[in-house]
Design a binder for these strands. Structure first.
Lengths: 199, 199
DNA sequence: TCTTCATTGCACACCAGTGTGCAATCTACT
DNA sequence: AGTAGATTGCACACTGGTGTGCAATGAAGA
């Protein structure tokens, strides 16, 4: 890789800082404006527009990052050709930090940029649907819902749990795994859930 | 009941029409403006403001209606003192048309009026949490998540299924019941789900 | 030193939505 | 006929956010 000049490095740092801060700020208020993001990043609004021509560009970049990371995880997991339930468990385990980081996308998917985000998420959704489909075909997952809806529901739930996770970050990934397995209709999940005493 | 004058009746009709149409319009776009609602109701924007002083008033009214109906159902169901799983099944069955009608509230809960809606929904959420709590205490529901989160998740899922229900309105209530039972950790739901062949 | 360029601090235009004011109109009721 | 009141049509002010233009600043790089 070509060594970056100090200037270019500084610019990249600013850019990354904006992106990171944007995830935070939008996470607390999905309707936060460019001004909020800018000031939280210790920068002027005008500067943000220097890096991202429009608000949509910013959000699209965030979404693309999320999609890339999530797709990588899903591809890795499905490459092993394990049974669908085992694949799912591994998927959630590795997806968790990503889902937690990009949990705001769940809210952002509704509203102004919904269609743009949905489009970017499309290929990922498709792959995930395939996994659920395969699980149903091999009688590992229940068939109470068609694969497209069931997969959406399951991974929306993951994000929802990640979103309600403003305090206990430790037990949540386990809870997310169990909850999703349960709603996918994996009977063994019940036994696991029973061991997991919370109250 | 005192017989309404034709004028008063006409006004009420207009008001009801606005409310009904608002559910539709907001259902398709939660960010729809007063102008969209007005024209969809065959009325001028100014008239809407005659019935509802502000956008918040309109949405609050819708929310109050929803809360009232949902609370009625929940109160009825829990009054019988059945086991939690049986109560839940009956609850969803009777909740379904209400959830389907007010499905937009799921999206509306985020965004500008989120706190107002959340406040109105508070008492209902509390009652629902109690039901889930009771289910966990009697080992009918699993304990993978604390009652407040689990109840939120379960009934959000109901609304989500109702929201994705733009075509097949028949099988959905059954699917919603099964899905929620599964995520609540009711093992018998699996058997029911297996009978319900979709593919 | 001189140049380049990211950043800054304003300015501005623009847009979309909200909520209000008021005269005009049309219709039900008296 | 006459009145009350719901509705209309238009005007307006206000808000809050977006995106742009441009000169000034300051620091890295030649």
């Amino acid at each position: 890789m070509p060594a970056e000049s100090s200037r270019a490095r500084s610019m990249n740092e600013t850019r990354e800082r904006i992106l990171n801060v944007a995830l935070d700020v939008l996470g607390q208020d999905p309707d936060a404006g460019m001004a909020d993001i800018a000031s939280a990043a210790g920068v002027v609004r005008r500067t943000v527009y220097g890096h991202f021509p429009s608000r949509l560009d910013l959000i699209r970049t965030l979404t693309e990052q999320a999609v890339t990371e999530m797709t990588t995880v899903l591809t890795d997991v499905t490459a092993a050709a394990k049974p669908a339930d085992a694949a799912w468990v591994e998927f959630i385990a590795r997806l968790w930090p990503v889902a937690h980081r990009y949990r705001v996308l769940l809210a952002l998917r509704r509203g102004e940029y919904g269609t743009a985000i949905h489009a970017l998420l499309g290929p990922f959704d498709e792959r995930l649907t395939n996994l659920v489909q395969q699980g149903q075909d091999t009688d590992v997952f229940a068939k109470h819902l068609p694969p497209p809806i069931l997969s959406q529901l399951a991974y929306s739930t993951i994000f929802a749990i990640a979103d309600s996770d403003l305090s206990n970050g430790i037990r949540s990934p386990r809870a997310a795994t169990i909850t999703s397995l349960l709603m996918l209709g994996v009977p063994e999940a019940r036994a696991i859930a029973l061991v997991d005493d919370q109250g």
